[in-house]
Write a protein that binds this DNA or RNA. Sequence first.
DNA 1: AATAAAAATGCATAAATTTGCGTGTTTGTA
DNA 2: TACAAACACGCAAATTTATGCATTTTTATT
Lengths: 249, 249
Amino acid sequence: MLKEERHYHILDKIILNRKVLSADLSIELNVSEDTIRRDLNELSAKGLIKKVHGGALPLENNTPSYGERSTYNLEEKNIIAKKAVKIIKDGQVIIMSGSTTNLQLAKIIPSDINATIYTYSLPIALQLTEHPSIEIIFIGGKLHKSAQVTVGLDVVSSISELRADLCFMGTGGINTLNGMTEPDWEVSHIKKSMIAASEKVIVLCTKNKINDVKRYSVAPIHKIDTIVTDIDPNDPIFEDFKEKGVKIL
Amino acid sequence: MLKEERHYHILDKIILNRKVLSADLSIELNVSEDTIRRDLNELSAKGLIKKVHGGALPLENNTPSYGERSTYNLEEKNIIAKKAVKIIKDGQVIIMSGSTTNLQLAKIIPSDINATIYTYSLPIALQLTEHPSIEIIFIGGKLHKSAQVTVGLDVVSSISELRADLCFMGTGGINTLNGMTEPDWEVSHIKKSMIAASEKVIVLCTKNKINDVKRYSVAPIHKIDTIVTDIDPNDPIFEDFKEKGVKIL
DNA sequence: AATAAAAATGCATAAATTTGCGTGTTTGTA
DNA sequence: TACAAACACGCAAATTTATGCATTTTTATT
């Protein structure tokens, strides 16, 4: 493995885990700890990481911003984001909904991934501007202030003109009988159009949404390809989903 | 857990709870109280916290946030924004370009103003979400990362379908002979469409842009209704503009 | 190709940092 | 004043680090 490859690996891992240990990296990358230390020193000299005794940390220890600190269930959402980010392959076209889980996902997309991402969420778009190689297309429309996403017919019609490989979306509730459901009529329509436009549908949802049902239907269960959760994918709660052909991560 | 991780944890907790106790931290972070004390002493020596018997407290120091500190010419831009905000009348439809001056303007729109604002700038849209009564329409398209605005044909064609009372825009340069000019081809086209869509055109520009000329033409001087600047509107530099019927604020 | 120069890597060793604990001192409170 | 909690200090053990040097790999040049 080339030195530069190691450097990219280290940078990505720091973004993903908010820290790295020299000992871990030594095993992972199959080089001596000395080499890792030299790598960390170089990256630190370039001002890309903060080297500390035992490993390294990201530069501005991205103290979750004021708004985010209060985000409910942040830990669970990070677990989901870490699983989901591995689904993304180079060169894909992706649609992302405006959930906070998707925001966490946007933060940890490795820098060597090249993709086109459509989104209608202001915070996600803003976050993605920090990624070096992702092309971002913002879907315009009337802005919903508290959720900081665009909504309305403009959004639905824009999305229906797209063609994407993947879409990542949160959900209000999901079960095998009613499929995916949402409490908001407008959001349910936007998600319908996202699903229609995408080759594969990835649903990001925390445990408490499993087997929950909301007012408006979005899609039957067979339209969902993969559910990414914060708990063990072998949990018996997922048996029914697996029978219907849904992958669980 | 790395020493620095503990430090960040401690700082976070102090901000959140307004105090920390050594005994609590010792349990939380699973290290001895001695270690916690050493941590607190280090952070205190760095001037980040105030160490007291039993724990530590924040030292309230209201430093201006990083984003604001770094904006170039912020003072001038605020002067312009304060003059420009008075132009806005209740119920108007407004288009705003993506300049930092417009961002300052967005921050100080009085909360009793009711208006519809079209913009293609992420920071401006985000700022406006804090206003209670303004309706925001975001103009979608490909996102330009460093400027955090959407660009491209989508933007131009969206704007050309609009009809607005006012538009506020920055400029690359302006003089009476060449009118308004921009260094960027794409931006020049977006601004052309903004002008075509608006009843009145308000140009926000600092002194150094007056009588400057850039590569691409945007509009002849007679299309401009008002120029808002940071200097005295009676300055002789504006004589020519006034003769051509441009109002100076 | 052949070969020299440069860069990267691993190892041994000495130096440094970090941590917990024992000791005795200081502090806050009743 | 009494007394428990919090503290500073020194020390030892464990861990991490820097450094010099030998070996291997990569790169550039003839």
